[in-house]
Design a binder for these strands. Structure first.
Lengths: 294, 294
DNA sequence: CACCATTTGTGAATAATACTCACAAACCCT
DNA sequence: AGGGTTTGTGAGTATTATTCACAAATGGTG
């Protein structure tokens, strides 16, 4: 790389302003001979003297004066640009592009957005909800939030929710007319309340017990896309429902709902915020990580 | 010196423009790992990533885009300034401040000014005539032209005239009524044509023979400040005259004038162009040297 | 005119950095 | 899953920036 260094040009300006190598050296924190060598090197590179000097006086030549006239504003602009970049470290700014699982958007992100916006007024969160696995870099995203199990192992991850545990529940009145299922394989004989995510198909219920894994496409009299409606229908005895233990807890405590197939419902990795590894973390994203992480 | 190098910033711009370390490395003539290290160093210095990259794609971050927006014009300005300076080497421009002995101005410089002005249209010659010894740097001069004997020995000198030789001449008719002088000491007994330089006093005639030096304040019936008038008066027998051998040559050849005290009139150092030593020679001054030197 | 104090300039040595080398890691296509 | 290509990394080397130890230059002073 050809070497026309910002620092040498800046040094030249300083010497010209001070009209002294000695004063300029003090100001720049280097020796006078370092400056002498640097200016000489610059002059030799261009084949034109930039400073006329004796031991008693230093002044720009015509060429030096021309250079100063053009350099000063340009170096000021560069310094301003660099200062602006330095300032970003201390006051996070700019855009963070997130791709977030819809459920995570509502359960993890939404509750904390207000605080984040107040804490970091210069950060713009650009949130895209998407259930599918997204290639972050190709999609132009800085980070994502999804269930841990969907995140590639080479990503940097931060837990942003507890590991949720599913619950299969029904009302006591439902079980008066239907025997409780002993295994997930009994479910096709039951009336189950399906849940639809956006434009995707209905949610298949997944079960694990020890080394066994079962996925069951349930059916029943009702398909909804709202968790509240689903919970209400289950309480009313419409059928069995699949929801988070946390969501079901108050109804289980009150006896409105009864849980079944407990042993087929272990916890699973919750939501994690993730971004590609070995990346200098933008200050804005670091701030988001700090806000969301458990 | 803190290192925000022009070359690293320029490299950053190139990578951002090419959207590829590999293509940028080819363009800049360095290895991809040199660029990788350089950009990493820049990002670490600022604590802010400037480029987002995978092995398949490179794009500026928000911070990087901000930096690019401000850097590009500024670096363009600097490059323009540096190109302008480089251009000076090939097409001399600017002002050359000369201090010149009046006689040298008319005999050495004037005859060549026209050609020089045509050859170097961007050069401005700022000529000050001054007979005294002038401190070049203190007086703000780039160079001077004077007799060699008046130039300090530490100056860089270039001969711009031959060494002139003086001649003492008189007409045959003058010598019919006056015996020819055998030594300069005889001159007070002669009628001599004095010559006045500007506001200075009359010129003292100087002689050297071997190790002897004599200075004679001559006197006579005529004091002039014009060489032509002086020559005419000598031919007319008004008295003895002191002039350059070159000026007297045609009259000596024709017999109108006769030379005396030959052996007391050795050549003396002619005019030299000089400037302070160890100075990067401005291109304009180098051009002047080439034009004037013998 | 000589001396002195201070500044700039220089060559050699040293300290620091830029760059290359020899890989590893990452990524996406087949 | 493998391959081809790109980016990233640590160590070693090449190159340069800077210091050191002076020398040279300058102008003021006595």
């Amino acid at each position: 790389m050809v070497r026309d260094e910002l620092s040498v040009l800046s040094a030249f300006l300083t010497v010209a302003e001070e009209r002294s190598f000695t004063r300029a050296a003090k100001r720049l924190g280097v020796s006078t001979s370092a400056l002498s060598h640097a200016i000489k090197g610059l002059e030799e590179h261009f084949g034109v003297p930039l400073l006329a000097r004796t031991t008693r006086s230093v002044a720009p030549t015509d060429a030096g004066a021309q250079l100063i006239t053009r350099l000063r504003p340009a170096l000021g602009d560069i310094q301003g640009a660099l200062d602006q970049i330095s300032g970003l470290r201390d006051r996070p700014a700019g855009r963070v592009r997130l791709v977030v699982s819809p459920i995570a958007a509502t359960t993890v992100l939404a509750p904390k957005l207000g605080q984040f916006a107040r804490d970091y007024p210069d950060v713009v969160l650009d949130v895209t909800t998407d259930e599918s696995r997204v290639d972050l870099v190709a999609g132009g995203f800085d980070a994502g939030i999804h269930f841990g199990e969907f995140i590639e192992r080479d990503m940097i991850t931060f837990r942003v929710s507890k590991d949720p545990r599913p619950a299969i529940v029904g009302s006591p009145s439902y079980f008066e007319s239907h025997p409780k299922p002993a295994t997930p394989r009994d479910l096709p004989n039951h009336r189950c309340i399906n849940f639809r995510h956006g434009s995707d198909g209905v949610y298949r219920w997944e079960f694990d017990k020890g080394k066994q894994s079962l996925t069951v496409a349930v059916n029943g009299p009702l398909i909804v896309d709202d968790v509240e409606i689903m919970v209400r229908a289950a309480v009313d005895g419409v059928g069995l429902a699949f929801m988070s233990e946390e969501r079901a807890a108050p109804h289980l405590a009150s006896g409105e709902l009864v849980r079944v197939l407990d042993d087929w419902c272990p916890p699973f990795p919750g939501f994690f915020l993730y971004y590609p590894r070995q990346r200098q973390l933008p200050a804005a994203l670091a701030a988001l990580v700090e806000t969301l992480r458990l």
